[in-house]
Amino acid sequence: MGQGSNPIDPKGSVAEEQYGLILLSLGIMILVTVVVFVLYFYAIVKYRRKPGDNTIPKQVEGSHKLEIIWTVIPMILLFILAVPSVALTFSQDVDYSDDPEVIQVKATGHQFWWEFEYPDLGIYTAQDLVLPVNQRVQFELTSSDVIHSFWIPAMGGKMDTNPGMINKLYLDTPAEPGVLKGKCAEFCGESHALMDFKVIVLSEEDYNAWVEDMQTPANTTVSADVQSGEELFKQNCMSCHAIDAGSPGLGPNLKGFADREVVAGFLEMTDDNVYKWIRDPAYFKGDRVEMPGLFLEDEQYQDIAEYLKTLKLE
C-alpha cells in the first residue's frame, strides 16, 4: 500500500534516519500498549461482578511500590527515546548553504504551485524539481503569499514556507533515478489538496544534460502550425509566464512545459487537459488562482495549447 513514495518507504539518508526514529518509538509504544492491554483485559475478565454478588471488595488506597514502578519505568523508556531524538534534531538541522558540494535550491510556495530556483545555475523552474542521484540538496524555503509546507515524503520530513521569512532544510536524494511525490502539507486555501509537485531524480549524466538544456535559450523559430498560438501566448501570457529558465515570472516558468508529467500539478498531460486548464483555471483550482480568465475564443485556447505542447527541452 501507499505507492509511489512515502515516509515508511524512505529513500535518502534523511528519510532513513527519520524512519529509524519512527520505528524505535513505535517499538517502545507497542511495548507500552501491550502491557496496558494485557493488564486491562485480564482485569475486565477476571473481576466481573457475578449476578447476586453483593460483597464489597477490599478498598485499596494505593501502593507506593507500584506507583514508583510506573513512574520510573516510563521515565527510563522516555530517556531511551529522548536521547536519539535530540541528537537527530540537532544533526539534521545543519545549514549547507555555503557548501560548494551541495546543490542549492530555493523553493517558493505560491497559491497553488511551486517555484524552484537553482541560484548557482541561473535556472528557474516550476512544478518539477529535477535533482541528480546521491546528492545532498540544501533548500531555502519561503512563500509569496500564505504559509505552505514543502514535503517530499520519501526523501524526508517537511518544512513550512513562511511569507517574509526563510527556512533552511537539507535532504539527500535517492540512489536510484525515479519520480517521487512532492506535496504541500500546510493548509493554504481552496486548492491546497492539488498543490502537488514532482521530484524527478536523474542519473548524474541526465541531470547535467537537463541543466544544459535548461540553460539554452528557447528556440525562437516555431513551426507554422503553432504560430498563431505563439502570437496569442505573447499577447496574453508572456507578461507572467517566462519560457526561458533564466527569469522567474509571476506565474510558473514554462520552460520544458510539454515534458512535464502533469498539468497544474495534478492533471494528466494531454492536449485536452492543457486546453481546459488555460481556458478556466478557476474551475480546477478556485477563484484564488491568480491566472486570470482571458476571454478568448475556444479555437484560440486550442491554439495556445498547441503551442504550449511544443515547449519541450532539446
Binding site: 526514529l21 518509538s25 496496558v36 527515546l81 537527530l88 517537511k158
Partner: peptide
C-alpha cells in the same frame, strides 16, 4: 472501561509526535 485502551492508543502516538525529526514526517499528515 473502553476509554482506557483507546486513550492509551491516542497517548502513545502523542509521544511519537513529540519526537521532532519523526514529527517532520507525521506533521500535517
Amino acid at each position: 472501561t473502553s476509554f482506557i485502551p483507546t486513550f492509551v492508543m491516542g497517548g502513545v502516538t502523542g509521544v511519537m509526535l513529540a519526537i521532532p525529526p519523526a514529527d517532520f514526517q507525521f506533521h500535517d499528515s
